[in-house]
């Protein structure tokens, strides 16, 4: 396997231009998914989905205003969300057909010619990334531009990002770079800065696409402590085994108790 590649999305320099969303759509030829005016912010894609593989979150943090006060806006947070390409990927684990696979770059990709649209990966993903495209029937998500990577190019979103908020590279290198950036921000007094998804000991074994955030992850629509539930699978099968034995036992008991009545009738 080649070196594991990843994304480091540094939200502290994101300007919310959505060039990543557009570049992703263009390169991957994704269908439009509605031109929705959300009426809550400048976000008009809402969330990641089958046809939105980069999603820029806009968070307007405001305070109470009097009638003639200021505009009430404290700060804007912007962050470009993407598939995390987890080390322990729940979508990959539960896929029954083998359509989802781990590439030589350590990323997680769906093979559209294999996927039969069972939909299991959709509720399995702890980040709510992958979704089924209903008119097409198959599951889709970010491939970290598998085709471009094979051609030695960086993914379209990273290429298009004008501020280098989206950085692409070998994951080890990105982690070091992120630590440096975090130390710098803390030194400048931005104590609210934190990394998200960089820890290999978290519930998904660390993300291949991780983030520098300026508030708690749930504010960006990210789960604070995501878990790939496959880790509980042995326990789940043990409980199911016990239930299966109980089922057979209950049937056996029912017939043992019935012999007397059977002969009487």
């Amino acid at each position: 396997m080649a070196e594991r590649m990843g994304f480091f999305t540094d939200s502290s320099v994101c300007i919310g231009c959505k060039a990543c969303e557009v570049a992703c759509k263009e390169w991957n030829q994704l269908p439009d998914d509605g031109f929705v005016f959300e009426a809550t912010s400048y976000d008009n894609t809402g969330m990641l989905g089958a046809s939105t593989w980069r999603h820029v979150a806009f968070i307007e943090q405001a305070h109470e205003v009097s009638v003639h006060g200021d505009d009430g806006v404290d700060r804007w947070l912007m962050s470009s969300d993407v598939c995390k390409h987890c080390t322990n990927a729940a979508c990959l684990d539960v896929c029954p057909t083998g359509a989802l696979f781990r590439t030589e770059f350590g990323t997680v990709v769906v093979q559209p010619d294999i996927c039969n649209g069972c939909g299991y990966c959709v509720p399995a993903c702890p980040f709510g990334v992958i979704d089924r495209r209903e008119d097409d029937g198959r599951a889709w998500k970010c491939t970290m531009c598998y085709d471009r990577q094979r051609g030695g190019l960086e993914p379209a979103c990273a290429k298009a990002c004008p501020t280098d908020s989206i950085q692409f590279g070998p994951l080890d290198e990105l982690r070091e770079r992120a630590e440096d950036r975090l130390a710098r921000l803390h030194a400048d007094g931005h104590d609210e800065a934190r990394l998200y998804g960089e820890n290999p000991d978290d519930g998904v074994g660390g993300a291949g696409a991780f983030f520098l955030l300026l508030d708690e992850p749930e504010v960006y629509g990210l789960p604070p402590d995501p878990v790939a539930t496959t880790r509980d699978l042995p326990a789940m099968w043990r409980w199911a085994g016990a239930a299966a034995v109980s089922l057979a036992g209950a049937v056996a008991v029912a017939f043992l108790g019935s012999r007397g009545r059977g002969s009487a009738s």
Binding site: E38, T40, S41, G46, M47, A57, I59, G119, V122, P123, C125, P126, F127, G128, V129, I130, D131, R132, E216, E218, V219, Y220, G221, L222, P223
Partner: peptide, 16 residues
């Protein structure tokens, strides 16, 4: 008591 992104779901609902 919790914070969220405009009350949007974090995970996707089952498609079944």
């Amino acid at each position: 008591e919790f914070r969220s992104y405009y009350g949007r779901p974090v995970i996707k609902p089952p498609v079944w």
